[in-house]
């Protein structure tokens, strides 16, 4: 979904850059609350992992491909503010060194993937965990729902930006329908990968999954109380 230079006009690109700057600024504050010396190395690894998986385009119907955006996955593993920073680091490196995502479009790409992708993914995950049974097994399912919804929402956000400031006059609903439908299919891939990755981490280190904290933290605390008594 990396937007190249030239799709959106300069005022729209500048506006998304302001949105991105405010969002990342808030994320720096928020991430301080989420991070500690234990989770900081994990957050760095999550950023590297998302960079790696974003190279892996999987085929979707009709000669199209998609790759993991990773917003929901990162948010569930390290928290949404930290995830915003993880995706931002990935997008900056991709934009400046790998020619993936335009330079003037960097703000747009941060807005779409680091803000919309992460926060829609996290919001849907949180809602799903409230509805699903309070068990560890529910976490990957909720993650899949977060991943599934995050991709078409980011795609539709691009369609909305293109309707406002696209450089080519294409009917807004044409772009919206095409973007939404392709990315709904890509979202299925996102859902499967998100669920698989979260299941893998839960199997090894359930205590490191930010989105599962309420379900894992109580156990060691109870053991400590028992030792003291």
């Amino acid at each position: 979904m990396h937007v190249p230079d030239g799709f959106l006009n300069l005022p729209t690109s500048a506006a998304t850059a302001v949105v991105a700057a405010v969002g990342v600024g808030l994320a720096v504050r928020g991430a301080r609350r989420e991070l500690n010396e234990r989770t900081a190395p994990l957050a760095g690894l999550v950023a590297a992992f998302i960079f790696a998986t974003q190279m892996l385009n999987f085929p979707v119907a009709a000669g199209t491909s998609g790759h993991l955006l990773g917003g929901a996955l990162a948010a569930i593993l390290v928290g949404p503010w930290t995830a915003t920073l993880c995706l931002t680091v990935v997008l900056i490196v991709q934009g400046f060194l790998f020619a993936d995502g335009g330079i003037t479009a960097l703000g747009t790409n941060i807005t779409l993937m680091a803000l919309v992708g992460v926060w829609v993914g996290w919001g849907a995950f949180r809602l799903a965990t409230k509805v699903l049974p309070k068990r560890l097994a529910s976490i990957p399912v909720a993650g899949a729902i977060g991943g599934l919804l995050s991709v078409p929402t980011a795609a539709l956000t691009f369609a909305a930006l293109f309707a406002i400031g696209g450089t080519v006059p294409v009917p807004a609903e044409t772009v919206a329908i095409a973007m939404g439908s392709v990315h709904l299919v890509i979202g299925i891939g996102e859902a499967l990968i998100t669920a698989a990755a979260i299941s893998a981490v839960l199997a090894v280190r359930p205590d490191l999954v930010y989105g599962a904290r309420g379900l894992t933290v109580t156990k060691p605390l109870q053991i400590k109380e028992g030792v003291l008594a």
Partner: peptide
């Protein structure tokens, strides 16, 4: 990995704004 165009590139090609992309 698949080298097919990604979702956005595909949509840009289908709906006619692919050419607007500048050289990176």
């Amino acid at each position: 990995a698949s080298s097919s165009p990604d979702g956005l590139e595909w949509v840009a090609g289908q709906t006619g704004f692919e050419e607007a992309a500048g050289e990176h």
